[in-house]
Design a protein around this nucleic acid. Sequence first.
DNA 1: CGCCAGGTGGGAT
DNA 2: ATCCCACATGGC
Length: 241
Amino acid sequence: MRSTSRAFLSLYLRLREAYGPQGWWPLPSMAGARGFDSGGYHRGSYRWPRSPEGRFEIILGAILTQNTAWTNVEKALERLRRAGLVLPDQFLQVPARSLARFIRSSGYFNQKAKKLKAAARVFSQPGFLEPRSAPSREDLLSLWGVGRETADSILLYAFGRPVFVVDAYTRRIFGRLGVFDGTESYDQVQQKFHDLLPARPRIYNEMHALIVEHAKQHCRATPVCSGCPVSLSCRYFSASS
DNA sequence: CGCCAGGTGGGAT
DNA sequence: ATCCCACATGGC
């Protein structure tokens, strides 16, 4: 257990060294603002959003990015923001049909419009956008359109809860590394990270962001192993070289 | 072109 | 419980 934990930490540090700080979660509304880059990523040390608008933007993004490239999500968030839709109450005033038009670029727009309405209904309740009194994981999972990954993204990135986010990239990368065989459930994969990493939102945040970056740069659907920072501990690389 | 992208819900088996 | 499919745009 201890040695495996050290291996995980070592992997984390390797990725951290290779890709640098990631500054997640991106807030497109903050693009170009002081301390943010043109994509709305933080520069330097990350801080969780202090405003309800910021936290709700993360919630919107977490839903809109389901099985969708982030660039398409950025456009949708931009359209929503320009329409003045930044807080839950405002979403409740707008029919799903209209919402769907704003978020067209993010794909699955009819479904996602419905999901945004469901989220708006919950987060319009007093205090629900405050970290002190945010909804539980169970509350979030009961929402139509919010599954485990989306719930955990909201808990970690909007509210700073120590919950590790498991996505398709996590399974792909750690599957190739030889840690998982592909049969594990979401909760089993998550449990492994909870067991082997320090239970700190900071670490979970950065690890997940690094996983996404690594999946994009090297551990793609068709792997690009040349220059991979963790190839030496990778079963797939060993087997294919 | 076809594949892929920070999934989820619902229905069939 | 698990498998299969619909949902949809945009970039490479």
